[in-house]
């Protein structure tokens, strides 16, 4: 028999899944729009961010109402709190797709020497994001550590790109280079927030806040 509590949790999970799918689609499209300088697609992505924000608000309200009316304990309580945390991180990750889209509209073109880094970091981040969010709904403790560890590859690419700046910078390209590097930094931050989702998985299972660095 499904309890009232389970029914409410599933409803909140449904909204969270929708939010995750939306944010993932925004990043897939952001990567595409960046490659092709597609400003129309960039505008669509920005519009989708509003939907993400609405879902975040809905999840927050639903969890608040769930806590107030169902007084959940144990795994139900941990799940509810973890969902608020994940929604918060996913919302931020959505903001990053919006930031990249704004860059496409306002600042194109991308500074060429860093294109490869951006492509790789997009792929790394999206793979990690997909794994972390899937794990959240079917949590396995060990996997949360494994997935979180993948953030180091994203961080390493940021560092490598940073060290290349002195080699390529000159007075004519400095603004374009800074804007491009800003995208790299944004993807690195998206990786950090994905790592937070792994922390939320651990919280969901163990009720403890573990800092994965």
């Amino acid at each position: 028999m499904t309890t009232l509590i389970e029914t409410e949790i599933r409803e909140i999970e449904k909204n969270l899944k929708e939010m995750i799918d939306l944010v993932l689609s925004m990043h897939r499209d952001a990567k595409k729009a960046l490659e092709t300088n597609d400003t129309k697609l960039a505008i669509q992505i920005i519009k989708r961010d509003e939907q993400v924000n609405n879902l975040d608000e809905l999840i927050n309200e639903s969890v608040l109402s769930f806590l107030a009316t169902q007084a959940p304990v144990a795994r139900d309580l941990r799940s509810a709190i973890a969902m608020i945390r994940v929604a918060n991180d996913v919302e931020r990750i959505g903001d990053y797709a919006k930031t990249i889209s704004e860059f496409i509209i306002l600042t194109k073109p991308l500074y060429d020497p860093f294109k490869l880094y951006i492509n790789d970091m997009f792929d790394d981040f999206m793979k990690m994001f997909q794994m972390a969010t899937s794990l959240f709904f079917k949590p396995v403790l060990e996997e949360s550590y494994t997935i979180a560890a993948q953030d180091q590859f994203i961080d390493a690419k940021l560092k490598k790109a940073f060290h290349e700046i002195p080699k390529v910078v000159n007075t004519t390209n400095v603004m374009s280079l800074l804007d491009t590097f800003n995208i790299i930094r944004t993807l690195e931050r998206a990786g950090d927030h994905t790592k937070n989702i792994c922390e939320a998985v651990i919280f969901k299972l163990k009720g403890k806040k573990i800092d994965l660095g």
């Binding site: 304990v73 144990a74 309580l77 941990r78 403890k208």
Partner: peptide, 11 residues
């Protein structure tokens, strides 16, 4: 106990 019960029967 109410956040992280140890025994599955308690949970």
């Amino acid at each position: 106990f109410f956040a992280t019960p140890k025994d599955p029967r308690s949970e």
